[in-house]
Amino acid sequence: MNNLFTNTGSSSFSGFLGEHAPDLLPFRNQQLAAPVGDQIPHATTIVVVTCAGGVVMAGDRRATSGNIISQRDMQKVFRTDDYSCLGIAGTASTGIEMARLYQVELEHYEKMEGRSLSTEGKANRLATMIKGNLPMAMQGLVVVPIFAAYDPNLDAGRIFGYDVGGGPYEQFQYHSIGSGSIFAKGSLKKLYRENASPEDAVLTCVQALYDAADDDSATGGPDVTRKIWPAVAVITADGFRRLSDDEVAGYVQAMLEARMTDPDGPTAPLR
């Protein structure tokens, strides 16, 4: 308990946790007897698209263990503070724990210092946390998040990608991670429009996720019978907003209707 009063080193929560209660950190340096990656549920595809004055993140809802669908309604887009969010792909449990720690990390800094971290500061902090997970990643517990934020200094949305060793790699226009990301990126490349409205950007994300689910077995498409829709978050100068199920359902229905006659979705002009 004494640590609570004497630790004045830095405003980092994970740094403090490492000293005060290291067993609570998601990343530990213990060796697993055998790689367990295949037996633990994996989260799959996340897409991020910048729009006029902000950024939109969307994720499918499926988690898989090998060929089994372990969860149909998983949430993998997390609000991290008023102006940022985090999407996770890879080992679901470690990813959720990392997102939870990261949320506290940002809030802790804000309360201690009386100001929010800069957007770059947030992105760098996440890189350090991913690097901390590297030993576990080598054992098969890979987590690769994607970070999106509204930057008040630029009045624009920004996207940061990572790899298992950390990062960050700033991405422009759009980005995608997870098993369906190859297909989602192909779709985004053709559907991305500069300075689209947030509404159009949401539709772009929903289309890209559908294209990913179309070709990747681990990515879940919209579940019409169970009414499970993609998780969508919009961040603008007004802050973080998660779209309600009804709102997302509207976008998905519009997309599905168009795909009834044109299953491959919208086409980009050739010239």
Partner: peptide
């Protein structure tokens, strides 16, 4: 310093 300790206490309990 009391304030900072309080934030540490709250955040660590909320996280645990």
């Amino acid at each position: 310093s009391l304030r900072l300790a309080g934030i540490r206490y709250a955040d660590i309990n909320g996280y645990t």
